[in-house]
Amino acid sequence: MTVRDFIRLFKKMIFVIIATAVLMFILGYFFPDEQAMSLAIMKEYSLEVILVFPAVLVLMGLVDIWMPREMVRRHFGDTAGFRGLLLSVFLGTLPAGPLFIAFPIAGKMLRKGARVANVVAFMGAWASLKMSEIGMEIYFLGVKFAFLRVVLTLIAVLGIALITEKMLTVAGKELTKESI
């Protein structure tokens, strides 16, 4: 990271912090109840991100260094076939926080040579097929609802993944980094 990058980042951070402070101030002035609730929710989410995100970043760095492109391509690339798709879904179901943490991981997979369908399947599973949440769903909404939703969602996740890939490669164009 050059000094210039650092300064740019620093400016961005200052901007975000000031914008947040101003927003919260305005909110507190006109809607004090909503502000209190906003702050409580923000605290909850921040805690989740602070607890999980640094570890996820370090893991990504380690994977970047130790896992060669060839290996990612073998397990998640075009030739990995249905096994690659299933592996992506399985990885997505591992518990690890809100969906927006998965975006950088998915981006990394993509840049390391993973297939579009696998990356999208990973995100879909991360969002909707978390073990802990399925347990909660059974408890609050009943086993039949949870079972139907999980089975249908799994089919949908695979469908979304394959159609998204199809849409990107439409017109017979080779998928390149630029076309993403």
Partner: peptide, 21 residues
């Protein structure tokens, strides 16, 4: 990567908080 994503994370968290309230 973390430094690059930090402003985004803060922004998203603020938006979620405001929206939910």
């Amino acid at each position: 990567k973390g430094a690059n994503l930090m402003p985004w994370m803060i922004g998203i968290i603020v938006l979620i908080g405001m929206m939910l309230s």
